[in-house]
Design a protein around this nucleic acid. Structure first.
Length: 592
RNA sequence: GCCCCCGUAGCUCAAUCGGAUAGAGCAACGGACUUCUAAUCCGUAGGUUGCACGUUCAAGUCGUGCCGGGGGUGCCA
């Protein structure tokens, strides 16, 4: 049990003893560190319903709390805040207990769930660019976080590979290379042999074609109509289109795998819209048979509005009027698959916040169509847009955006330049310098994004993603590297970490107080699905360590008990930092 | 039209789901390297939290209205 949990239990009992709601006993970290370590504000909330004076309640609560081992002093301040000073001994004991466990003292969850994290979601046939950064790294972080807490997680890239864009690309390719066998309706594999094995296009070709055909469809209804027909025919199994789809798919997956790998993002499954292809028609049929779905203007729709709604909610479209399917359809069938085949208890959709309405429709329709049981939860974890310098979101279909691979190269070069100018790693082997540059560059990139709140929009700024000083990823790495260096030297000198003794200097005490918060921070980050909570805490932990480092010279410490205790303390700090950075998807070099 | 999100220091962003004196980084200015890695540390300065009412012991946070920005809104994803 964490220190905060112990205190909360203690104060909850005290409130019960006063015949007040035990929930008023919630203890939080103090916001005024000069006044207290922890605080309980319950007396303020309890006063009104109980018809009592908050300060009197606080006094009564304090009188009930008797834990001399744990608590040094209790003060009542202001209107009725109870300020708690933890005893140094209890603090050291609590920190020490953290280092005894793999979980670093993070409280276990009540019920492990099978959590499907839907993130990444690139469209097939598009090179990854900065717009894909957030989905990838926020999703990766959320997945790692839930996994660390003890849930079973499945990360699914959920590629956009079965919708209108594919039909559009087919049309564009047909116009560019009309003689390809894929477009010949007369082509018969049995007679003419199999379709060519080699792809007629590269991913670069497809990426170039994308904005062109999008524009053409917008400008010319006839082209748009052809794209619709092509989409319909693809979804209904036209052999040539399926064959060319296979090429689109394989060149896309090959390139995107590289990009995601470079980013340190790994999916457990590479499913996509097309995965549920076979289930679309039966699902729509069932919806029609049950009366949940019905025809309207030739399309099949599901009403998702309820009388309680204040805003008007448009119905969800299951099929277009030509019978082809939309991403609503594949999203619904995907829910069905995840529930039936993957045992999903909780689905987290890490997708652009602008798709909020879509997911509200899909989730409601899924309940209504009985493909989402009441005990399975699904949530849209929306995130803000990355805007261009003009203040508008990067438009993925207008082309001319920064490729993800180029971005990674840029930040890596930046880190490399920093190494050179500081003459830091001149004696390291070249391979190691390369690895360090890559790790540091990625850390800058990821932390620059993850330290923002998920839902906030921000302007893309290369400087922001390639800063190595101050509140940055490299600062966190640097802190960890300094600890590694100390531990290496200590080891060489035969110094060993030993029992953690109560803190003797303020920097040490502050660091300890920071460490014991870990459990609450991790749980809070998971509850809010907000990696920036981890990022913020990581930075604070690193600054606390840096101050301790400046003030307490471990290797020169004459008091051997103190020295051994400090070694244990920084060793734990390294473990916690390593874990936190891992949850953010950031690697730590051995030296930098 | 309707709905959603945002507006915090010069800039980029936080703020423990209503708590005490709104915090960081960058930029600016001033200090600290013969000592475990200076990608560091210490200090100074910087604010009517868009505006106005309201709810409450307590509002950046909740409610209403307004101003400004972004997004969404049945056959794109």
């Amino acid at each position: 049990m964490s220190l905060q949990q112990e205190l909360t239990a203690l104060f909850s009992q005290a409130f019960e003893a006063e015949e007040l709601e035990s929930s008023f006993g919630a203890v939080a970290v103090s916001q005024r560190p000069e006044l207290a370590d922890f605080q309980c504000n319950g007396a303020l909330g309890a006063a009104k319903p109980a018809g009592r004076n908050p300060r009197d309640i606080a006094a009564a609560i304090v009188a009930h709390v008797d834990a001399p081992e744990l608590i040094d002093t209790l003060d009542i301040a202001g209107p009725g805040f109870i300020n708690i000073h933890i005893s140094d001994k209890a603090l050291a004991g609590s920190v020490s207990a953290m280092s005894d466990t793999e979980r670093l003292g993070v409280a276990p969850i009540h019920r492990p769930l099978t959590v499907v994290v839907d993130y990444g979601g690139p469209n097939m046939s598009k090179a990854l660019h900065v717009g894909h950064l957030r989905a990838a790294i926020i999703g990766e972080s959320v997945k790692r976080l839930f996994s660390f807490l003890g849930h079973t997680t499945i990360g699914d890239i959920h590629m956009g590979d079965w919708g209108m864009p594919i039909g559009q690309l087919i049309v564009e390719l047909q116009d560019r290379q009309p003689d390809l066998p894929y477009f010949d309706p007369e082509y018969d594999v049995a007679v003419d042999g199999p379709y060519p094995e080699e792809s007629p296009v590269t991913l670069d070709d497809l990426s170039d074609m994308y904005p062109v055909i999008t524009r053409r469809c917008a400008d010319d209804p006839e082209v748009a109509e052809r794209a619709r027909v092509a989409t319909f025919e693809l979804q209904n199994g036209r052999a040539g289109y399926l064959a060319v789809w296979e090429h689109f798919h394989s060149v896309s997956v090959a390139e995107q795998t590289k990009d995601f790998k470079a980013l340190g993002v790994e999916f457990d499954v590479w499913y996509g819209e097309s995965t549920v292809n076979q289930h679309l028609e039966p699902m729509v049929r069932t919806a029609l048979a049950g009366g949940v779905g019905y025809e309207s203007d030739g399309a099949v729709i599901v009403d998702v509005a309820t009388p309680e709604d204040k805003k008007e909610l448009p119905p969800l479209l299951l099929t277009r009027s030509d019978g082809s399917y939309l991403y609503s359809t594949t999203d619904l069938a995907t829910i069905e698959m995840r529930v039936k085949d993957m045992g999903m208890d909780l689905g987290l959709y890490v997708v652009d916040a602008r798709q909020g309405l879509h997911f509200e429709q899909v989730f409601r329709a899924a309940r209504k169509m009985n493909i989402l049981p009441s005990d399975v939860m699904v949530e849209h974890i929306g995130f803000g847009t990355v805007n261009g310098p003009d203040g508008r979101p990067f438009k993925t279909r207008e082309g001319g955006v920064l490729r993800l691979g180029d971005l990674i190269a840029l930040v890596t070069e930046g880190a490399r330049a920093r190494l050179d100018e500081a003459h830091i790693a001149e004696d390291y082997p070249d391979e190691e310098r390369d690895v360090i540059a890559r790790q540091v560059g990625l850390a800058a990139l990821k932390f620059g994004d993850l330290s923002n709140h998920r839902t906030s929009n921000y302007t893309f700024d290369l400087e922001r993603f390639s800063a190595f000083e101050g509140k940055t990823g490299p600062y966190l790495q640097y802190s960890a590297v300094r600890i590694k260096s100390i531990l290496r030297r200590a080891d060489k000198q035969g110094l060993k970490a030993a029992e953690m003794i109560p803190p003797t200097v303020s920097q040490e005490r502050i660091l300890m107080l920071r460490l014991v918060r870990l459990s609450e921070v991790v749980h809070r980050a998971a509850d809010l699905r907000a990696p920036n909570v981890l990022a913020e805490y990581s930075y604070e932990l690193a600054t606390d360590f840096s101050r301790f480092y400046e003030h307490c010279h471990i290797l020169n410490e004459p008091d051997v008990r103190r020295q051994a205790s400090w070694l244990a303390l920084v060793s734990l700090t390294l473990d916690v930092l390593t874990k936190l950075l891992d949850l953010l998807g950031i690697e730590i070099p051995d030296r930098m």
